[in-house]
Design a protein around this nucleic acid. Structure first.
Lengths: 137, 137
DNA sequence: TCCTACATTGGACTTTGTCTAAGTCAAGAT
DNA sequence: ATCTTGACTTAGACAAAGTCCAATGTAGGA
């Protein structure tokens, strides 16, 4: 957990209480929070943290690659601190919960040259959808 | 194009001028419009069509499987009438334009049973990201 | 033609996110 | 240890995308 704080300090970040709390929330329970959920959890520790600060900090974490933005449903984006191992997401179409999954092979290689239309393709994200055991009952 | 209208009639849809226009816009140029863009094009033909009606009609078309909702960037959803051939999307990370692509193999089969956590997985969508030739210059 | 259930309308409302001006503070310099 | 300064935070206004509702209109069957 303090790994992240160390990495941030190395990058010359000013370590404020607010940033510390946001980083701690993300690295705590390993779930995929929305920005508002991050804000709620952060407020529990630092009551007067502003919404804008949470958004700012999350954007910066995404920009430097410490966190991944996941938008599965066109609603609120979710933030995923699990950037060490490349992975994809499995989403429940009823309740929206997300699990990290590790499919076999590299999805990028499934796109033939003739289907790239001159794009420089750099990334492929896969979203699996289904119904979780909880919602199935 | 009137294929779609026929299919809708068969499903017992009341064929109103508004629904006709929305269906025609989607089946016209083969691009991926946002709801607002659909509304703009529909208004050109039927000036007083309401935003809510466009949203309603799009939701219904999605619900019956005639149109696919694509949310690539957490901003406005886009609507894709190309449901005949299964396909995936290639998105330019600069300008946001979308192309339909046809990768090889079935992405669903890349997810081993041990990575499904009891979910009933029914669908896999792949989003390729890159820079289009236009933005590369 | 008339009826009625279904569709449309417009506007208020919600959710998610961005922006800004003014105040605050972390960390290097003295 | 204190000062200074530019980066950070704040509150609230704003914006974009989408939903909801009560009142009104109308497609299609009787």
């Amino acid at each position: 957990m303090s790994d992240l704080l160390d990495r941030l300090r190395e990058r010359g970040w000013r370590l404020t209480a607010q940033r510390r709390v946001v980083a701690e929330v993300l690295n705590g329970d390993h779930v995929h929070y929305t920005a508002d959920e991050v804000h709620a959890h952060a407020s529990a520790r630092l009551p007067e943290i502003a919404r804008a600060t949470v958004y700012n900090t999350l954007s910066e974490l995404v920009a430097i690659g410490e966190v991944i933005e996941v938008s599965t449903d066109g609603r609120a984006k979710r933030y995923d601190p699990n950037v060490r191992h490349s992975h994809q997401h499995l989403v429940c179409s009823r309740c929206g919960t997300i699990r990290d999954v590790h499919p076999q092979g590299d999805p990028l290689s499934a796109l033939p040259e003739g289907e790239r239309y001159g794009f420089t393709v750099s990334d492929a994200t896969v979203t699996y959808r289904g119904v979780c055991p909880n919602c199935a009952s």
